[in-house]
């Protein structure tokens, strides 16, 4: 069925800039209304708290912010940063769309890959970006993830991955569908080499990414409240004409159904990841 079910409103592009705008202390501080508790939260307070509202609601976060949050300062070395692909199918409007998104996000593609240390534990790391076409997977995202797992096999490193995705990128058609098989093959090789892969599923992780490398990790973590599923909730509602159960496709319900290892809020992610890496790296 439909693969790309979480299309964000266009205006979210603008707020997805590379770094936080410096907050002006004097003139009335900008605020953001929490979708959960409906309270207006000063932006500076949100930034200071990894974009988590005091009520616990986790706001969307761009890939660079996540990198800064979980890696040791100065430890991240980016790989395959310049990899791009034009418009494989000459899909109408895709070239222009890519140009706009690149401008607005400051990123070349929807995933950032590299090596890093998390509390001293070296690993390969990928972080998807919700502000780059909702982290959709096309040929570049698929290739970067694949290369990272291959690199991790060569160097015998664990992989930590943060997923956020609307699914396969439909503007790349079959080419994007095939990335599901390609990334799965690389994850399998990494797994067969006896190496650890931890995925952190963030809001939303859906479609072809859920049905490939997101769910293929040895240990599956998720952020509180994250939407995790294959088909989109709206599509399911329209197809089945039944109302959805409360909490459907939230991390909490996915955990209850047995498909996640743990839900970890941002404040605890670095510690949890470094501990898991330590447990598998034979360190102390």
């Amino acid at each position: 069925m439909a693969f790309i079910n979480f299309i964000k409103p266009k205006n979210q592009l603008e707020e997805g800039g590379r770094t936080a705008a410096p907050v002006q202390e004097d003139a009335g501080e900008p605020e953001k209304t929490c979708p959960n508790c409906r309270k207006a939260i000063p932006l500076s307070r949100l930034w200071a708290n990894h974009l988590v509202c005091p009520c616990g609601c986790h706001f969307r976060m761009n890939a660079r912010q996540r990198l800064a949050m979980v890696t040791d300062p100065g430890s991240f070395r980016e790989l395959y940063a310049d990899l791009t692909a034009g418009n494989p199918l000459d899909f109408p409007g895709y070239g222009e769309k890519l140009a706009t998104v690149r401008n607005a996000s400051g990123e070349k593609e929807g995933v950032i890959c590299g090596t890093a240390a998390i509390d001293g534990q070296k690993c390969c790391l990928f972080v998807m970006d919700p502000y780059f076409m909702m982290g959709s997977m096309g040929s570049v995202v698929g290739e970067k993830i694949t290369r990272l797992f291959e690199y991790a096999v060569e160097r015998r490193l664990s992989v930590v991955g943060f997923t956020v995705s609307g699914g396969a990128r439909m503007q790349e058609g079959l080419v994007s569908l095939m990335q599901m098989a390609k990334t799965s093959a690389a994850v399998k090789r990494h797994s067969d080499a006896g190496l650890l892969y931890v995925a952190v599923l963030t809001d939303p992780t859906t479609g072809g990414v859920t049905a490939s490398f997101a769910m293929e990790a040895d240990i599956l973590l998720a952020e509180p409240g994250a939407t995790i599923g294959f088909a989109g909730a709206r599509v399911i509602e329209q197809t089945t004409r039944k109302s959805l159960p409360k909490g459907f496709q939230t991390a909490e319900s996915v955990l209850q159904h047995g498909f996640l290892d743990s839900i970890v809020p941002r404040s605890g992610q670095k510690q949890m990841l470094s501990e898991l890496l330590r447990l598998h790296n034979g360190g102390v």
Binding site: A181, A185, G229, A231, T239
Partner: peptide, 21 residues
């Protein structure tokens, strides 16, 4: 793949991912 509440609750995404892998 079947698009429905039960399919999701029984791990449609994981089932497909495991086959690919």
């Amino acid at each position: 793949a079947c698009c429905g509440v039960e399919a999701e609750e029984r791990g449609q995404g994981l089932a497909i991912a495991e086959n690919l892998m």
